[in-house]
């Protein structure tokens, strides 16, 4: 029985129309149908945060949303957010602090960091750490990531902390 449905949405500003199986997760749709492989799959049960994307401006876990649920929505991935220059300062701070090693967690962390700073660029270290509590990184031990976010936040808050 063909249960597939047609969905239309915008992904990184580009209109997309596809037929998808209902069981296809949003992150699998982005990765395997649209070949936007910057969003990663780490656990498929909502713990690791590697698949974090934005839907209608809100941070979501791409493994905990079905592609069909994104019908009519505005989806943004790391490719899009990096492409617009929105997180240029965060990318630069991550590179300077070496806040990434293997890079598997990095796209999800950048999007999460962007949301943390969007809510409060003057966020303190403890709040950053709580904000990152749903993003797993095995390589860095988080220290450099926290420093990078503080650095970018300080820049956005006008250099005053």
């Amino acid at each position: 029985m063909d249960t597939s449905l047609e969905i239309s949405l915008t992904v990184n500003g580009v209109p997309v129309r596809r037929r998808v199986e209902p069981r296809l997760s949003l992150v699998d749709f982005l990765r395997y149908e649209l070949e936007l492989t910057g969003s990663h799959v780490g656990c498929e049960h909502g713990v690791c945060g590697a698949c974090t994307v934005r839907v209608d401006g809100e941070l979501v876990r791409g493994c905990l949303m079905l592609a069909v649920q994104a019908d009519g929505c505005r989806v943004e991935t790391i490719e899009g957010v990096a492409g617009t220059g929105e997180i240029f300062d965060l990318q630069q701070a991550f590179a300077e602090e070496n806040a990434l090693q293997c890079g598997a967690c990095t796209p999800g962390l950048l999007l999460t960091a962007q949301e943390i700073l969007r809510r409060n660029p003057r966020v303190d270290e403890a709040e950053i750490r709580r904000g990152l509590s749903g993003n797993y990184c095995r390589c860095t031990g988080y220290h450099a990531i926290v420093q990078a976010i503080r650095k970018a936040g300080a820049g956005r808050a006008g250099g005053t902390r």
Binding site: L36, T37, G38, S39, T77, I78, E79, A82, G83, Q91, F94, A95, N98, L100, G103, T106, P107, L110
Partner: peptide, 9 residues
């Protein structure tokens, strides 16, 4: 790291 930070790994 540039490619990893842009989702281009």
């Amino acid at each position: 790291t540039a490619r990893l930070l842009a989702g281009r790994g």
